[in-house]
Every structure is written in C-alpha cells, then in structure tokens.
Design a protein around this nucleic acid. Structure first.
Lengths: 258, 258
DNA sequence: AAGTGGTCTAGACCACTCG
DNA sequence: GAGTGGTCTAGACCACTTC
C-alpha cells in the first residue's frame, strides 16, 4: 500500500519547516505554486496543508499566504493509546505490573462509558508502570465483559495490553476520548509511586474504542507531577471581526431533515 | 459573512446526533445520500463530516459508513482563549483583579515563547480570577513590549484582556498552543486561592498569537483541582494535535523543547 | 457483487489581503 | 488590481466493508 500523494506533500513540507527552510513567521508557497511543483491538483495540495494546520504547524487566513507557527515536530497522537509506545518513542525502558484484576458490577459511570447495562460484570484492573526503573504512573481500568477473559489471561508483567489485544484478539484501538485534570495523591497512589500523600498528580482519564465504535476500556491514569504534560494546539477558524456586518441569507435552499 | 454550505450541513448533523436521532454506534447516511438530500456535491458533504470527525463526534473507516462515537456537544477549544468567555459559556459570573504589573527583562523561556531577544523588557502581570465569587485561578502572564502599554492602561478589574485588546487595539487572538499538567500550590497560590499549600493545581500554560502568527502573551494559569478539566478527542487516522510528552531531564537546566 | 469512503482531477466563483 | 485562500461542482478510480 503506497502513501497517499497528499501525505507525501505534507511530509515534505513538515520536514522543510522542521529544518528551518521556512522559519517561524515565514510564508509558505501559494497553493498553486505547490500544485505546480508537485504536479498535483490544488485539492490535493489543500489536503496536505490542512494536515499541517491540524498539527498546529501552520495557520491560514483567507487572502494571505499560510504562515509557519511552529517548527518543532510532535509525536503522533497515536502515542496516547499506549504508555508502552510512548515510552518507546522517548527511548525509555518501561515495565508494567498488574496489582489487581477483579470482576465486579459496573458503577454508573463505568456502565455509561463502556456502553453496558448498569451493574453488568466488568473487569477492573490496576497496574503500576515504570519508566527507566522509576514508578511514574498508576493505571486503573474498567474493561467490558467481552474482553474480561482476554485481560485475565495476560501475564502479570504484560507491558502493552493494547498491543496484546491487537495481536491475539484483533482488537484495534482507533478512537480516544481524553479528560485531563489534577488530583491529590491518595494513600495507595502515594505508596505505589513513592510520593507524598496529598501531592499533585496529573490525571488522564481515557475511553478507547475500536474502529466500529465499540468501547475497549475506560481508564484512570495518574502520573507524578513533572513526569508528563499534555499539549494541544488550536486555531480559531472564524476570526471575530471588530465591526459586525449583516448576514446575507442564502435564498432558495431548503433545510432537509438529516 | 454568510454561513458556508458545509457548515450548515455539519450543524444539522451535529444537532441530529445530539438529539439522539443517530445514537452512539449508529451509522450515518452515506455521502451520496447526504449529497442528494442537501442538493450538494459529495465534496461539500465530505467537508461537513470532516468537521464532525475532528470534533470527535463521528468516526470513519474506508468502505464502511461513518459511526457515531459521542452524542454530547462540547465547547470549542476557542474557549481556551479566554477565561471570561469560558465562564460566560458556563453561565457563571467571573471577576478578575490585577495583583501586579511589572516591566522586567524576559527570561530565556519568555523570550523564546514571545519571539523577542533575551533580556528584552516585557510586561509581567499577575491576576486573581473568580467564578461565582470563589477564587479559582491565578494567572501569570508575560506580554511582549509592543503590548505593554496597552495592558498597563487597563483598569485593575478588567474582566477580559483579550476582549479589550480586540476592541481597542485590533489585536485578535487566533492561534493557541497549550501545555497542561499539574503542580503543587506554592505559598502565593495557596494564599490567593484559599487552598492548602502543596495541594494539587491544574496548570495551563498558553501561548496566544495573532492571525499573522505574532505572539500576544505567554501565560501560566493555575486552577484549584476539581474546578476545571481539559477534554480532547482523537482518531488514529486523523492526526489531532494533542501530544503527551515526557519531561526526562529532571534537574533544572535548559528550555523545554516544544 | 454492490455499496461506501479515500483519493485525485480540473475546472469555477467569491472574499479577502497586499502592494 | 493581482494574488491568494475559502468554497463548491462533477466527474473518476481505487481499496475496503458488507451481504
């Protein structure tokens, strides 16, 4: 399977920005120039630059050339699926150990997140995870009934549950929904992480789903403060004008039911 | 500035999903069916559904119809530009008070973020912000020299600096780059927030830029734990700009690579 | 085998920026 | 006024899912 044309163009632009060929604040070539240079249509070029825009590397406004906003590359968001992959990406050694695996009725929140009836028997697992020998994260995950047995059969030191599920069960994580905040370390957190009780932890709650939208797991990951940070870029698509102007309605178009 | 066709379609689909017409797990109509229903081309329909995909509402795989992943609407990340706007969106009353406004040389990090020479005179401001009368956030911001005077002239209880800059100086925030983690409350944080010293705070560091990519401010916002959480969705095929980074260099040296 | 989304083309008109 | 991005159309072929 070959790489799509727009992805090639995006990769080349990304690289050029990263190497400083287009420094921060510089303007990119116009769409038509890129199209000519790559022998591609304007639509394909637009797919490429849209990719860079969602990565926060470039910004655009109607009528002006695109500008470079950042020049550093960022790891793919796919790393968020897996602590183990993230560790590998940093070149660190990671380990993992199950602390508990218990079947019990789903709480209201777990049932809602996993799309199972309230009280259905889910599998609750807790793991301690280390980076280069240091304990940095406690993970507590609720798995839906259809995955319980597969999780129970994993070895105690399984490094990547997601990789194992993908390899042996064909379960692929494709979608993620993330909630990030801070909490005080509880007594178990503190004991496991060798941390001060009541001290700050980064909490990352995450619902992972398959390509068909079926929930795989709802987890609560807690990191020692300082060991991790989350990064998000955004652009305001519609710039609020200083002087509002009247809308021009578009006559003659119905509003079909969707 | 009329609404684009694809945005109308996206809004209708969003609404239908929110109202449960397409529950979680349901499959959307095909692109060709939507195109026929809306008398639009397939390309326009694809723009609409791409919008919903980046919002995390729907997912897609080649060969299969799109599926609904979530049904709750979510505030846009544009709210991240402004504490005041975020408060309004929640229906809460917010106030703000300047604690300090001082000109001083930029530190290395401030200079790098604001794209000014190291040691250039920036304006450093601290504010305490409340929600429905409760102090919930301490904000410390570095503003570039070209904005220093405008900030100094603002009243002490100015609720939204971003709104003021937009109205009186034509400075519009369009791009944001956000770093989210947790820290322990320092003595000033604790005193201002009426909080336990050393207790967990959500830290939101944020670089805001104009449409031309010019930095407006680099701020460090600290919230009481429990008062705020950050929410992001992603799909593996679509690159979304959220990245988890490790901070592997413990002792204080150098700038964080971004 | 039919249906569907992913990719790509080659046009078109408009709104906006910039010199 | 020329250049540029935003939006839209009407085709096309392919890879993949579904039945």
């Amino acid at each position: 399977m070959g790489t799509a044309r727009y992805q090639e163009i995006a990769a080349a632009l990304r690289q050029a920005i990263h190497l400083g060929e287009y420094p921060i604040g510089a303007r990119l070539p116009s769409e038509s120039e890129l199209a000519a240079r790559w022998s591609a249509s304007r639509g394909t070029v637009r797919q490429a630059v849209a990719l860079l825009a969602t990565e926060g590397l470039i910004g655009s406004r109607q009528g002006a050339r695109r500008v470079v906003l950042r020049q550093e590359l960022r790891h793919s968001f796919a790393d968020l699926y897996s602590f183990a992959q993230w560790a590998r990406g940093m070149g660190a050694e990671s380990t993992s150990r199950f602390l508990r695996r218990q079947r019990r009725p789903a709480t209201g929140e777990e049932a809602a997140r996993l799309a199972v009836p309230e009280g259905a028997e889910i599998l609750h697992a807790a793991r301690l995870r280390t980076l280069d020998g240091e304990p940095v994260m406690v993970e507590r995950t609720a798995y839906p009934p259809w995955l319980a047995q597969a999780i129970e059969e994993l070895p105690e030191d399984c490094v990547s549950i997601m990789d194992s599920l993908a390899a042996s069960d064909g379960v692929l994580p494709q979608y993620g929904d993330h909630l990030i905040d801070a909490v005080a370390a509880g007594s178990e957190d503190a004991r496991l992480l060798g941390y001060r009780r009541g001290g700050p932890l980064v909490r990352h709650r995450n619902l992972t789903s398959t390509p068909t939208g079926r929930p795989i797991g709802w987890s609560d990951d807690r990191y020692r403060a300082g060991s991790v940070s989350f990064n998000v870029s955004n652009a305001q698509t519609t710039v609020v004008p200083l002087v509002r102007r009247g809308d021009r309605s578009r006559p003659g178009r119905g509003l079909p039911r969707v």
